[in-house]
Design a protein around this nucleic acid. Structure first.
Lengths: 294, 294
DNA sequence: AGCATGAACTTTATCCATAAAAAACAACTT
DNA sequence: AAGTTGTTTTTTATGGATAAAGTTCATGCT
Protein backbone atom coordinates (compact mmCIF):
# COMPACT_ATOMS: atom_id res chain seq x y z
CA UNK A 1 0.00 0.00 0.00
CA UNK A 2 1.14 3.48 -0.76
CA UNK A 3 2.44 5.28 2.32
CA UNK A 4 0.61 8.32 3.62
CA UNK A 5 3.80 10.20 4.27
CA UNK A 6 2.69 13.17 2.24
CA UNK A 7 -0.31 13.60 4.45
CA UNK A 8 1.63 13.11 7.66
CA UNK A 9 4.32 15.53 6.69
CA UNK A 10 1.68 18.09 5.71
CA UNK A 11 -0.11 17.52 8.98
CA UNK A 12 3.06 18.16 10.95
CA UNK A 13 3.68 21.28 8.97
CA UNK A 14 0.19 22.55 9.64
CA UNK A 15 0.60 21.79 13.33
CA UNK A 16 3.74 23.87 13.40
CA UNK A 17 2.03 26.71 11.60
CA UNK A 18 -0.75 26.63 14.16
CA UNK A 19 1.65 26.54 17.05
CA UNK A 20 3.69 29.41 15.70
CA UNK A 21 0.58 31.50 15.27
CA UNK A 22 0.95 31.68 11.50
CA UNK A 23 -2.70 30.70 11.24
CA UNK A 24 -4.35 33.03 13.69
CA UNK A 25 -7.96 34.11 13.31
CA UNK A 26 -9.98 32.54 10.53
CA UNK A 27 -7.96 29.94 8.64
CA UNK A 28 -7.15 30.60 4.98
CA UNK A 29 -9.13 28.80 2.29
CA UNK A 30 -8.21 25.27 1.28
CA UNK A 31 -6.72 26.57 -1.92
CA UNK A 32 -4.59 29.06 -0.10
CA UNK A 33 -3.32 26.37 2.25
CA UNK A 34 -2.63 24.11 -0.67
CA UNK A 35 -0.42 26.74 -2.19
CA UNK A 36 1.44 27.34 1.04
CA UNK A 37 2.09 23.70 1.77
CA UNK A 38 2.80 22.48 -1.73
CA UNK A 39 0.38 19.56 -1.69
CA UNK A 40 -2.95 18.90 -3.36
CA UNK A 41 -6.22 20.15 -1.96
CA UNK A 42 -7.21 16.57 -1.33
CA UNK A 43 -4.38 16.29 1.13
CA UNK A 44 -5.14 19.65 2.67
CA UNK A 45 -8.68 18.48 3.32
CA UNK A 46 -7.44 15.32 4.92
CA UNK A 47 -5.20 17.35 7.18
CA UNK A 48 -7.99 19.77 8.04
CA UNK A 49 -10.28 16.86 8.74
CA UNK A 50 -7.86 15.35 11.20
CA UNK A 51 -7.06 18.71 12.78
CA UNK A 52 -10.78 19.26 13.36
CA UNK A 53 -11.21 15.73 14.64
CA UNK A 54 -8.47 16.34 17.20
CA UNK A 55 -9.93 19.75 18.00
CA UNK A 56 -6.77 21.50 16.95
CA UNK A 57 -9.03 23.59 14.77
CA UNK A 58 -12.64 24.44 15.51
CA UNK A 59 -15.28 24.46 12.78
CA UNK A 60 -18.33 26.62 13.39
CA UNK A 61 -20.70 27.15 10.53
CA UNK A 62 -18.13 26.52 7.83
CA UNK A 63 -15.61 28.86 9.44
CA UNK A 64 -12.38 27.38 10.73
CA UNK A 65 -10.36 28.85 13.56
CA UNK A 66 -7.46 27.58 15.63
CA UNK A 67 -8.55 25.26 18.43
CA UNK A 68 -6.70 23.90 21.46
CA UNK A 69 -2.94 24.29 21.78
CA UNK A 70 -0.71 21.96 19.80
CA UNK A 71 1.21 19.49 21.91
CA UNK A 72 4.37 17.60 21.04
CA UNK A 73 2.41 14.40 21.06
CA UNK A 74 0.21 15.67 18.24
CA UNK A 75 3.03 15.27 15.76
CA UNK A 76 3.51 12.16 13.69
CA UNK A 77 6.94 10.66 14.28
CA UNK A 78 9.56 11.63 11.71
CA UNK A 79 9.99 8.07 10.56
CA UNK A 80 6.43 8.10 9.26
CA UNK A 81 6.99 11.15 7.12
CA UNK A 82 9.54 9.75 4.69
CA UNK A 83 8.41 7.81 1.66
CA UNK A 84 9.62 4.30 1.03
CA UNK A 85 11.76 5.54 -1.81
CA UNK A 86 13.54 7.83 0.60
CA UNK A 87 14.03 5.10 3.12
CA UNK A 88 15.57 2.93 0.48
CA UNK A 89 17.93 5.68 -0.51
CA UNK A 90 19.12 6.24 3.03
CA UNK A 91 19.49 2.59 3.83
CA UNK A 92 21.32 1.88 0.64
CA UNK A 93 23.75 4.74 1.14
CA UNK A 94 24.41 3.57 4.63
CA UNK A 95 24.90 0.02 3.41
CA UNK A 96 27.33 1.25 0.79
CA UNK A 97 29.33 3.80 2.74
CA UNK A 98 29.31 2.23 6.17
CA UNK A 99 29.37 -1.43 5.38
CA UNK A 100 32.50 -3.07 4.14
CA UNK A 101 31.06 -3.93 0.77
CA UNK A 102 33.97 -4.67 -1.52
CA UNK A 103 34.15 -3.30 -5.04
CA UNK A 104 33.17 -5.99 -7.49
CA UNK A 105 30.50 -7.43 -5.24
CA UNK A 106 27.27 -8.16 -6.98
CA UNK A 107 24.11 -6.68 -5.63
CA UNK A 108 21.01 -8.71 -5.32
CA UNK A 109 17.65 -6.98 -5.55
CA UNK A 110 15.82 -9.58 -3.57
CA UNK A 111 18.33 -9.61 -0.77
CA UNK A 112 18.31 -5.84 -0.42
CA UNK A 113 14.53 -5.87 -0.55
CA UNK A 114 14.40 -8.28 2.35
CA UNK A 115 17.07 -6.41 4.24
CA UNK A 116 15.36 -3.06 3.82
CA UNK A 117 11.87 -4.41 4.22
CA UNK A 118 10.46 -3.20 0.91
CA UNK A 119 9.29 -4.79 -2.33
CA UNK A 120 11.90 -5.54 -4.96
CA UNK A 121 10.37 -2.97 -7.22
CA UNK A 122 11.43 -0.16 -4.97
CA UNK A 123 14.97 -1.45 -4.82
CA UNK A 124 15.16 -1.74 -8.53
CA UNK A 125 13.90 1.76 -9.11
CA UNK A 126 16.43 3.11 -6.71
CA UNK A 127 19.26 1.20 -8.34
CA UNK A 128 18.29 2.42 -11.78
CA UNK A 129 18.22 5.97 -10.54
CA UNK A 130 21.44 5.54 -8.67
CA UNK A 131 23.31 3.90 -11.49
CA UNK A 132 23.93 7.22 -13.13
CA UNK A 133 26.29 8.05 -10.30
CA UNK A 134 28.84 5.71 -11.75
CA UNK A 135 29.04 3.37 -8.78
CA UNK A 136 26.84 0.62 -10.14
CA UNK A 137 26.35 -1.21 -13.35
CA UNK A 138 23.40 -3.27 -14.46
CA UNK A 139 23.95 -6.65 -16.04
CA UNK A 140 20.67 -7.67 -17.64
CA UNK A 141 18.95 -10.77 -16.31
CA UNK A 142 21.69 -11.15 -13.79
CA UNK A 143 21.93 -8.38 -11.24
CA UNK A 144 23.97 -5.35 -10.42
CA UNK A 145 27.69 -4.93 -10.16
CA UNK A 146 28.86 -2.69 -7.36
CA UNK A 147 31.92 -0.85 -8.57
CA UNK A 148 32.78 0.69 -5.25
CA UNK A 149 33.34 4.11 -3.83
CA UNK A 150 37.00 3.92 -4.69
CA UNK A 151 39.93 6.17 -5.28
CA UNK A 152 39.42 5.85 -9.02
CA UNK A 153 35.89 7.02 -8.63
CA UNK A 154 36.99 10.11 -6.73
CA UNK A 155 39.70 10.90 -9.26
CA UNK A 156 37.35 10.64 -12.19
CA UNK A 157 34.73 12.66 -10.38
CA UNK A 158 37.14 15.47 -9.65
CA UNK A 159 38.58 15.53 -13.13
CA UNK A 160 35.14 16.41 -14.47
CA UNK A 161 34.39 18.71 -11.61
CA UNK A 162 37.44 20.80 -12.30
CA UNK A 163 36.65 21.04 -16.00
CA UNK A 164 33.11 22.14 -15.32
CA UNK A 165 33.92 24.55 -12.59
CA UNK A 166 36.71 26.28 -14.45
CA UNK A 167 34.36 26.71 -17.36
CA UNK A 168 31.55 28.07 -15.22
CA UNK A 169 33.75 30.36 -13.18
CA UNK A 170 35.20 31.80 -16.33
CA UNK A 171 31.81 32.45 -17.83
CA UNK A 172 30.57 33.89 -14.58
CA UNK A 173 33.33 36.45 -14.55
CA UNK A 174 32.47 37.53 -18.08
CA UNK A 175 28.95 38.58 -17.18
CA UNK A 176 28.03 42.22 -17.57
CA UNK A 177 28.46 44.25 -14.39
CA UNK A 178 24.73 44.78 -14.36
CA UNK A 179 23.94 41.10 -13.88
CA UNK A 180 22.02 40.46 -10.66
CA UNK A 181 24.25 37.49 -9.98
CA UNK A 182 26.99 39.83 -8.84
CA UNK A 183 24.74 40.97 -6.03
CA UNK A 184 23.96 37.42 -5.12
CA UNK A 185 27.66 36.72 -5.03
CA UNK A 186 28.24 39.69 -2.75
CA UNK A 187 25.49 38.44 -0.46
CA UNK A 188 27.08 35.02 -0.34
CA UNK A 189 30.38 36.61 0.52
CA UNK A 190 28.78 38.27 3.52
CA UNK A 191 27.19 34.99 4.54
CA UNK A 192 30.58 33.35 4.41
CA UNK A 193 32.18 36.01 6.58
CA UNK A 194 29.35 35.77 9.07
CA UNK A 195 29.65 32.03 9.29
CA UNK A 196 33.38 32.28 9.73
CA UNK A 197 32.89 34.42 12.82
CA UNK A 198 30.67 31.82 14.42
CA UNK A 199 32.42 28.83 12.97
CA UNK A 200 33.01 27.15 16.31
CA UNK A 201 29.35 26.50 16.89
CA UNK A 202 27.82 26.72 13.42
CA UNK A 203 30.29 24.84 11.26
CA UNK A 204 27.46 22.55 10.36
CA UNK A 205 25.87 25.23 8.24
CA UNK A 206 28.69 25.23 5.76
CA UNK A 207 27.35 22.50 3.52
CA UNK A 208 24.28 24.54 2.65
CA UNK A 209 26.45 27.53 1.84
CA UNK A 210 28.78 25.40 -0.24
CA UNK A 211 25.88 24.22 -2.31
CA UNK A 212 24.51 27.67 -2.85
CA UNK A 213 27.90 28.95 -3.88
CA UNK A 214 28.65 26.32 -6.47
CA UNK A 215 25.17 26.46 -7.88
CA UNK A 216 25.38 30.21 -8.19
CA UNK A 217 28.51 29.89 -10.26
CA UNK A 218 26.68 27.63 -12.67
CA UNK A 219 23.75 29.97 -12.89
CA UNK A 220 25.53 32.43 -15.12
CA UNK A 221 25.64 29.92 -17.97
CA UNK A 222 23.15 27.15 -17.37
CA UNK A 223 23.77 23.73 -18.78
CA UNK A 224 21.58 20.83 -17.68
CA UNK A 225 24.42 18.32 -17.89
CA UNK A 226 26.56 20.38 -15.60
CA UNK A 227 23.67 20.82 -13.19
CA UNK A 228 23.06 17.09 -13.24
CA UNK A 229 26.68 16.42 -12.55
CA UNK A 230 26.57 18.76 -9.63
CA UNK A 231 23.65 16.75 -8.31
CA UNK A 232 25.91 13.75 -8.21
CA UNK A 233 28.51 15.66 -6.27
CA UNK A 234 26.02 17.00 -3.75
CA UNK A 235 24.51 13.61 -3.27
CA UNK A 236 27.77 11.81 -2.76
CA UNK A 237 29.17 14.46 -0.46
CA UNK A 238 25.98 14.70 1.50
CA UNK A 239 26.03 11.05 2.44
CA UNK A 240 29.74 10.64 2.64
CA UNK A 241 30.22 13.42 5.13
CA UNK A 242 27.06 12.55 6.96
CA UNK A 243 28.85 9.46 8.21
CA UNK A 244 32.30 10.86 8.22
CA UNK A 245 32.49 13.74 10.58
CA UNK A 246 36.20 13.65 11.14
CA UNK A 247 37.78 17.11 11.30
CA UNK A 248 34.58 18.70 10.15
CA UNK A 249 35.25 22.02 11.81
CA UNK A 250 38.74 22.40 10.36
CA UNK A 251 37.68 21.23 6.94
CA UNK A 252 34.84 23.68 6.75
CA UNK A 253 36.84 26.55 8.10
CA UNK A 254 39.50 26.02 5.48
CA UNK A 255 36.88 25.72 2.77
CA UNK A 256 35.28 29.00 3.77
CA UNK A 257 38.60 30.77 3.44
CA UNK A 258 39.08 29.21 0.02
CA UNK A 259 35.63 30.29 -1.03
CA UNK A 260 36.33 33.82 0.06
CA UNK A 261 39.53 33.91 -1.97
CA UNK A 262 37.61 32.43 -4.89
CA UNK A 263 34.87 35.06 -4.58
CA UNK A 264 37.43 37.84 -4.48
CA UNK A 265 39.05 36.42 -7.57
CA UNK A 266 35.72 36.35 -9.37
CA UNK A 267 35.06 39.92 -8.38
CA UNK A 268 38.44 40.93 -9.71
CA UNK A 269 37.46 39.52 -13.15
CA UNK A 270 41.06 38.47 -13.58
CA UNK A 271 40.97 35.16 -15.48
CA UNK A 272 44.30 33.88 -14.26
CA UNK A 273 43.52 34.68 -10.65
CA UNK A 274 40.14 33.00 -10.96
CA UNK A 275 41.70 29.92 -12.40
CA UNK A 276 44.15 29.70 -9.55
CA UNK A 277 41.59 30.26 -6.79
CA UNK A 278 39.20 27.76 -8.30
CA UNK A 279 41.84 25.11 -8.75
CA UNK A 280 43.20 25.66 -5.27
CA UNK A 281 39.78 25.16 -3.75
CA UNK A 282 38.96 22.05 -5.73
CA UNK A 283 42.38 20.57 -5.11
CA UNK A 284 41.82 20.91 -1.42
CA UNK A 285 38.32 19.45 -1.58
CA UNK A 286 39.75 16.55 -3.51
CA UNK A 287 42.57 16.01 -1.05
CA UNK A 288 40.07 15.97 1.80
CA UNK A 289 37.93 13.39 0.11
CA UNK A 290 40.87 11.22 -0.86
CA UNK A 291 42.20 11.30 2.66
CA UNK A 292 38.91 10.06 4.02
CA UNK A 293 38.86 7.18 1.55
CA UNK A 294 41.97 5.49 2.88
CA UNK B 1 4.54 -12.83 -17.03
CA UNK B 2 8.17 -12.49 -17.88
CA UNK B 3 8.77 -12.75 -21.63
CA UNK B 4 10.79 -15.63 -23.00
CA UNK B 5 12.66 -13.42 -25.38
CA UNK B 6 16.01 -14.56 -24.13
CA UNK B 7 15.14 -18.12 -25.03
CA UNK B 8 13.70 -17.22 -28.41
CA UNK B 9 16.62 -15.10 -29.40
CA UNK B 10 18.99 -17.87 -28.33
CA UNK B 11 16.96 -20.38 -30.29
CA UNK B 12 17.17 -18.25 -33.41
CA UNK B 13 20.86 -17.87 -32.94
CA UNK B 14 21.33 -21.59 -32.57
CA UNK B 15 19.24 -22.19 -35.67
CA UNK B 16 21.49 -19.88 -37.63
CA UNK B 17 24.57 -21.63 -36.33
CA UNK B 18 23.14 -24.94 -37.44
CA UNK B 19 22.22 -23.61 -40.83
CA UNK B 20 25.61 -22.07 -41.37
CA UNK B 21 27.30 -25.32 -40.46
CA UNK B 22 29.00 -23.84 -37.40
CA UNK B 23 27.73 -26.83 -35.45
CA UNK B 24 28.70 -29.71 -37.69
CA UNK B 25 29.37 -33.16 -36.31
CA UNK B 26 28.80 -33.72 -32.64
CA UNK B 27 27.40 -30.61 -30.94
CA UNK B 28 29.54 -28.87 -28.31
CA UNK B 29 28.70 -29.37 -24.64
CA UNK B 30 26.02 -27.33 -22.98
CA UNK B 31 28.63 -25.29 -21.18
CA UNK B 32 30.46 -24.53 -24.37
CA UNK B 33 27.25 -23.43 -26.05
CA UNK B 34 26.42 -21.32 -23.04
CA UNK B 35 29.68 -19.49 -23.43
CA UNK B 36 29.22 -18.97 -27.14
CA UNK B 37 25.69 -17.67 -26.84
CA UNK B 38 26.03 -15.62 -23.68
CA UNK B 39 23.04 -17.11 -21.87
CA UNK B 40 22.68 -19.46 -18.94
CA UNK B 41 22.85 -23.19 -19.29
CA UNK B 42 19.23 -23.35 -18.28
CA UNK B 43 18.37 -21.49 -21.44
CA UNK B 44 20.74 -23.53 -23.55
CA UNK B 45 18.98 -26.68 -22.38
CA UNK B 46 15.63 -25.23 -23.24
CA UNK B 47 16.87 -24.40 -26.71
CA UNK B 48 18.39 -27.85 -27.16
CA UNK B 49 15.19 -29.43 -25.95
CA UNK B 50 13.15 -27.58 -28.53
CA UNK B 51 15.68 -28.22 -31.28
CA UNK B 52 15.50 -31.93 -30.54
CA UNK B 53 11.73 -31.80 -30.36
CA UNK B 54 11.62 -30.25 -33.80
CA UNK B 55 14.24 -32.71 -35.03
CA UNK B 56 16.63 -29.96 -35.89
CA UNK B 57 19.09 -31.89 -33.81
CA UNK B 58 19.13 -35.61 -33.33
CA UNK B 59 19.90 -37.19 -29.97
CA UNK B 60 21.28 -40.71 -30.02
CA UNK B 61 22.57 -42.13 -26.79
CA UNK B 62 23.38 -38.78 -25.23
CA UNK B 63 25.18 -37.58 -28.34
CA UNK B 64 23.70 -34.66 -30.22
CA UNK B 65 24.20 -34.08 -33.94
CA UNK B 66 22.59 -31.75 -36.45
CA UNK B 67 19.25 -33.02 -37.71
CA UNK B 68 17.06 -31.91 -40.59
CA UNK B 69 17.77 -28.71 -42.46
CA UNK B 70 16.70 -25.44 -40.86
CA UNK B 71 13.86 -23.67 -42.63
CA UNK B 72 12.88 -20.05 -42.50
CA UNK B 73 9.71 -21.01 -40.73
CA UNK B 74 11.69 -22.47 -37.86
CA UNK B 75 12.66 -19.03 -36.67
CA UNK B 76 10.69 -17.13 -34.08
CA UNK B 77 9.54 -13.79 -35.41
CA UNK B 78 11.79 -10.85 -34.53
CA UNK B 79 9.06 -9.15 -32.56
CA UNK B 80 9.13 -12.00 -30.07
CA UNK B 81 12.82 -11.64 -29.41
CA UNK B 82 12.87 -8.21 -27.84
CA UNK B 83 12.14 -7.80 -24.16
CA UNK B 84 9.36 -5.58 -22.95
CA UNK B 85 11.88 -3.06 -21.71
CA UNK B 86 13.27 -2.79 -25.21
CA UNK B 87 9.87 -2.39 -26.71
CA UNK B 88 9.12 0.39 -24.33
CA UNK B 89 12.34 2.12 -25.23
CA UNK B 90 11.65 1.97 -28.93
CA UNK B 91 8.06 3.02 -28.64
CA UNK B 92 8.89 5.87 -26.36
CA UNK B 93 11.63 7.18 -28.60
CA UNK B 94 9.30 7.01 -31.55
CA UNK B 95 6.60 8.77 -29.56
CA UNK B 96 9.06 11.47 -28.61
CA UNK B 97 10.90 12.04 -31.86
CA UNK B 98 8.15 11.36 -34.33
CA UNK B 99 5.11 12.62 -32.55
CA UNK B 100 4.52 16.29 -32.21
CA UNK B 101 4.83 16.27 -28.44
CA UNK B 102 5.41 19.83 -27.35
CA UNK B 103 8.08 20.71 -24.79
CA UNK B 104 6.44 21.29 -21.44
CA UNK B 105 3.89 18.52 -21.93
CA UNK B 106 3.47 16.30 -18.96
CA UNK B 107 3.87 12.60 -19.36
CA UNK B 108 1.48 10.21 -17.80
CA UNK B 109 2.71 6.76 -16.83
CA UNK B 110 -0.68 5.16 -17.03
CA UNK B 111 -1.46 6.59 -20.42
CA UNK B 112 1.85 5.47 -21.89
CA UNK B 113 1.37 2.07 -20.30
CA UNK B 114 -1.97 1.70 -22.02
CA UNK B 115 -0.66 3.06 -25.27
CA UNK B 116 2.35 0.72 -25.30
CA UNK B 117 0.49 -2.23 -23.89
CA UNK B 118 2.70 -2.80 -20.84
CA UNK B 119 2.33 -2.47 -17.09
CA UNK B 120 3.05 0.91 -15.52
CA UNK B 121 6.06 -0.51 -13.80
CA UNK B 122 7.90 -0.92 -17.06
CA UNK B 123 7.11 2.62 -18.12
CA UNK B 124 8.32 4.01 -14.88
CA UNK B 125 11.57 2.12 -14.99
CA UNK B 126 12.21 3.34 -18.46
CA UNK B 127 11.45 6.93 -17.55
CA UNK B 128 13.77 6.81 -14.56
CA UNK B 129 16.53 5.42 -16.71
CA UNK B 130 15.85 7.90 -19.46
CA UNK B 131 15.69 10.90 -17.20
CA UNK B 132 19.45 11.09 -17.02
CA UNK B 133 19.41 12.16 -20.66
CA UNK B 134 18.19 15.56 -19.64
CA UNK B 135 14.95 15.45 -21.60
CA UNK B 136 12.64 14.59 -18.72
CA UNK B 137 12.13 15.63 -15.18
CA UNK B 138 10.26 13.82 -12.47
CA UNK B 139 7.88 15.71 -10.26
CA UNK B 140 7.10 13.48 -7.30
CA UNK B 141 3.51 12.34 -6.84
CA UNK B 142 2.57 14.13 -9.98
CA UNK B 143 4.17 12.80 -13.11
CA UNK B 144 6.91 13.62 -15.54
CA UNK B 145 7.68 16.82 -17.33
CA UNK B 146 8.81 16.45 -20.92
CA UNK B 147 11.36 19.12 -21.60
CA UNK B 148 11.61 18.46 -25.29
CA UNK B 149 14.27 17.64 -27.79
CA UNK B 150 14.92 21.29 -28.39
CA UNK B 151 17.61 23.55 -29.71
CA UNK B 152 18.68 24.33 -26.15
CA UNK B 153 19.12 20.68 -25.50
CA UNK B 154 21.35 20.27 -28.51
CA UNK B 155 23.42 23.33 -27.62
CA UNK B 156 24.01 22.15 -24.09
CA UNK B 157 24.80 18.66 -25.27
CA UNK B 158 27.40 19.89 -27.70
CA UNK B 159 29.00 22.26 -25.26
CA UNK B 160 29.86 19.31 -23.06
CA UNK B 161 30.76 17.12 -25.94
CA UNK B 162 33.33 19.57 -27.19
CA UNK B 163 34.88 19.93 -23.75
CA UNK B 164 35.14 16.21 -23.30
CA UNK B 165 36.40 15.43 -26.74
CA UNK B 166 39.08 18.11 -26.74
CA UNK B 167 40.28 16.76 -23.44
CA UNK B 168 40.31 13.16 -24.63
CA UNK B 169 41.90 13.92 -27.97
CA UNK B 170 44.63 15.86 -26.26
CA UNK B 171 45.35 13.05 -23.83
CA UNK B 172 45.23 10.52 -26.62
CA UNK B 173 47.94 12.34 -28.51
CA UNK B 174 50.18 12.38 -25.45
CA UNK B 175 50.30 8.62 -25.18
CA UNK B 176 53.65 6.93 -25.62
CA UNK B 177 54.33 5.77 -29.16
CA UNK B 178 54.30 2.23 -27.89
CA UNK B 179 50.65 2.32 -26.90
CA UNK B 180 48.55 -0.25 -28.75
CA UNK B 181 45.90 2.36 -29.29
CA UNK B 182 47.97 3.89 -32.07
CA UNK B 183 47.62 0.65 -33.98
CA UNK B 184 43.92 0.62 -33.38
CA UNK B 185 43.74 4.15 -34.68
CA UNK B 186 45.66 3.18 -37.81
CA UNK B 187 43.25 0.28 -38.34
CA UNK B 188 40.30 2.60 -38.00
CA UNK B 189 41.85 4.93 -40.51
CA UNK B 190 42.00 2.08 -43.01
CA UNK B 191 38.41 1.18 -42.26
CA UNK B 192 37.41 4.77 -42.95
CA UNK B 193 39.22 4.83 -46.28
CA UNK B 194 37.65 1.54 -47.26
CA UNK B 195 34.21 2.75 -46.41
CA UNK B 196 34.76 5.95 -48.31
CA UNK B 197 35.45 3.97 -51.46
CA UNK B 198 32.18 2.15 -51.19
CA UNK B 199 30.24 4.97 -49.68
CA UNK B 200 27.48 4.93 -52.29
CA UNK B 201 26.16 1.59 -51.17
CA UNK B 202 27.50 1.22 -47.64
CA UNK B 203 26.95 4.64 -46.13
CA UNK B 204 24.82 2.96 -43.55
CA UNK B 205 27.88 1.45 -41.93
CA UNK B 206 29.22 4.80 -40.85
CA UNK B 207 27.41 4.99 -37.57
CA UNK B 208 29.20 1.92 -36.23
CA UNK B 209 32.52 3.35 -37.30
CA UNK B 210 31.70 6.69 -35.74
CA UNK B 211 31.02 5.01 -32.45
CA UNK B 212 34.22 3.01 -32.53
CA UNK B 213 36.24 6.07 -33.35
CA UNK B 214 34.94 8.27 -30.57
CA UNK B 215 35.14 5.50 -28.04
CA UNK B 216 38.71 4.78 -29.02
CA UNK B 217 39.65 8.39 -28.34
CA UNK B 218 38.27 8.06 -24.83
CA UNK B 219 40.08 4.83 -24.23
CA UNK B 220 43.44 6.48 -23.74
CA UNK B 221 42.27 8.15 -20.53
CA UNK B 222 39.17 6.41 -19.23
CA UNK B 223 36.69 8.34 -17.20
CA UNK B 224 33.32 6.78 -16.41
CA UNK B 225 31.50 10.10 -16.53
CA UNK B 226 32.77 10.80 -19.99
CA UNK B 227 31.85 7.30 -21.10
CA UNK B 228 28.39 7.74 -19.67
CA UNK B 229 28.01 11.00 -21.45
CA UNK B 230 29.00 9.37 -24.67
CA UNK B 231 26.27 6.82 -24.06
CA UNK B 232 23.78 9.65 -24.09
CA UNK B 233 25.13 10.92 -27.37
CA UNK B 234 25.04 7.50 -29.01
CA UNK B 235 21.56 6.86 -27.79
CA UNK B 236 20.16 10.17 -28.95
CA UNK B 237 21.87 10.03 -32.31
CA UNK B 238 20.91 6.44 -32.85
CA UNK B 239 17.23 7.16 -32.56
CA UNK B 240 17.26 10.60 -34.03
CA UNK B 241 18.90 9.53 -37.24
CA UNK B 242 16.96 6.31 -37.36
CA UNK B 243 13.90 8.38 -38.16
CA UNK B 244 15.63 11.15 -39.93
CA UNK B 245 17.40 9.83 -42.95
CA UNK B 246 17.60 13.07 -44.84
CA UNK B 247 20.90 13.52 -46.65
CA UNK B 248 22.38 10.53 -44.91
CA UNK B 249 24.86 9.75 -47.63
CA UNK B 250 26.24 13.28 -47.86
CA UNK B 251 26.35 13.70 -44.10
CA UNK B 252 28.27 10.51 -43.61
CA UNK B 253 30.63 11.12 -46.44
CA UNK B 254 31.52 14.53 -45.04
CA UNK B 255 31.94 13.06 -41.58
CA UNK B 256 34.33 10.40 -42.85
CA UNK B 257 36.52 13.06 -44.39
CA UNK B 258 36.48 14.98 -41.13
CA UNK B 259 37.40 11.87 -39.22
CA UNK B 260 40.31 11.24 -41.53
CA UNK B 261 41.60 14.76 -41.02
CA UNK B 262 41.11 14.31 -37.30
CA UNK B 263 43.02 11.03 -37.32
CA UNK B 264 45.87 12.58 -39.26
CA UNK B 265 45.97 15.40 -36.74
CA UNK B 266 46.18 12.94 -33.88
CA UNK B 267 48.97 11.08 -35.60
CA UNK B 268 50.85 14.31 -36.04
CA UNK B 269 50.75 14.87 -32.25
CA UNK B 270 50.45 18.57 -32.96
CA UNK B 271 48.15 19.97 -30.25
CA UNK B 272 46.95 22.95 -32.21
CA UNK B 273 46.20 20.92 -35.28
CA UNK B 274 44.33 18.36 -33.19
CA UNK B 275 42.29 21.07 -31.58
CA UNK B 276 41.30 22.45 -34.93
CA UNK B 277 40.42 19.12 -36.52
CA UNK B 278 38.38 18.08 -33.49
CA UNK B 279 36.50 21.33 -33.31
CA UNK B 280 35.84 21.34 -37.02
CA UNK B 281 34.35 17.87 -36.87
CA UNK B 282 32.15 18.57 -33.87
CA UNK B 283 31.03 21.90 -35.27
CA UNK B 284 29.85 20.15 -38.36
CA UNK B 285 28.09 17.39 -36.40
CA UNK B 286 26.38 20.07 -34.38
CA UNK B 287 25.32 22.02 -37.45
CA UNK B 288 23.86 18.87 -38.96
CA UNK B 289 21.85 18.12 -35.86
CA UNK B 290 20.64 21.68 -35.46
CA UNK B 291 19.54 21.78 -39.07
CA UNK B 292 17.44 18.70 -38.59
CA UNK B 293 15.75 20.19 -35.55
CA UNK B 294 14.12 23.05 -37.36
C1' DA C 1 -17.85 35.71 -13.01
C1' DG C 2 -15.01 34.19 -9.36
C1' DC C 3 -13.91 31.69 -5.53
C1' DA C 4 -15.23 28.04 -1.79
C1' DT C 5 -16.41 23.42 -0.66
C1' DG C 6 -17.91 18.66 -1.83
C1' DA C 7 -17.70 14.61 -4.66
C1' DA C 8 -16.08 11.75 -8.43
C1' DC C 9 -12.42 10.35 -11.14
C1' DT C 10 -7.48 9.56 -12.48
C1' DT C 11 -2.79 8.75 -11.56
C1' DT C 12 1.14 7.52 -8.65
C1' DA C 13 3.51 4.74 -5.09
C1' DT C 14 3.73 0.47 -3.35
C1' DC C 15 3.18 -4.38 -2.51
C1' DC C 16 2.52 -9.04 -4.19
C1' DA C 17 2.49 -12.98 -7.43
C1' DT C 18 4.63 -15.81 -10.93
C1' DA C 19 6.97 -17.52 -15.30
C1' DA C 20 11.53 -17.15 -17.27
C1' DA C 21 16.34 -17.12 -16.60
C1' DA C 22 20.29 -17.68 -13.83
C1' DA C 23 22.89 -19.97 -10.30
C1' DA C 24 23.85 -23.60 -7.21
C1' DC C 25 23.85 -28.29 -6.11
C1' DA C 26 24.12 -33.24 -7.15
C1' DA C 27 25.17 -37.22 -9.43
C1' DC C 28 27.74 -39.37 -13.31
C1' DT C 29 31.38 -40.28 -16.67
C1' DT C 30 35.65 -40.37 -18.44
C1' DA D 1 39.84 -33.94 -10.88
C1' DA D 2 37.55 -31.88 -14.46
C1' DG D 3 33.89 -31.71 -17.32
C1' DT D 4 29.01 -33.71 -18.35
C1' DT D 5 24.21 -33.62 -17.75
C1' DG D 6 20.05 -33.66 -14.47
C1' DT D 7 17.62 -31.25 -10.64
C1' DT D 8 16.55 -27.82 -7.31
C1' DT D 9 16.79 -23.23 -5.62
C1' DT D 10 17.21 -18.34 -6.21
C1' DT D 11 16.68 -14.16 -8.69
C1' DT D 12 14.98 -11.15 -12.31
C1' DA D 13 11.35 -9.32 -15.42
C1' DT D 14 6.80 -8.39 -15.79
C1' DG D 15 1.81 -8.04 -14.79
C1' DG D 16 -1.77 -6.91 -11.52
C1' DA D 17 -4.10 -4.87 -7.48
C1' DT D 18 -5.06 -1.01 -4.41
C1' DA D 19 -4.63 2.94 -0.97
C1' DA D 20 -2.92 7.56 -1.18
C1' DA D 21 -2.42 11.75 -3.58
C1' DG D 22 -3.51 14.60 -7.35
C1' DT D 23 -6.94 16.51 -10.72
C1' DT D 24 -11.27 17.50 -12.61
C1' DC D 25 -16.12 18.16 -12.33
C1' DA D 26 -20.29 19.84 -9.87
C1' DT D 27 -22.68 22.70 -6.90
C1' DG D 28 -23.38 26.59 -4.17
C1' DC D 29 -22.34 31.28 -2.38
C1' DT D 30 -21.10 35.88 -2.77
Amino acid sequence: MRTDTVYKKAFNRAATMLRDGQLSGELPSENELRRRMGVSRTTVRKVLGELAHRELVAERGGVRTAGRAVEDSDYYPDAETTSRANHVEQQFMEWMLRGDTRPGTSINELELARQFGVATNGIREFLIRFSRFGLLEKRPNTGWLFKGFTEDFALELFEIRVMFELRSAHLFSRQPNTSPLWDKLAALKVAHTELLKRIESRYHDFSGLDNRFHRLINEASPNRFIDDFYDIISFIFHYHYQWNKHDELQRNQAAILEHLAYIDALESRDPERIRRACQAHLASAKATLMRSLV
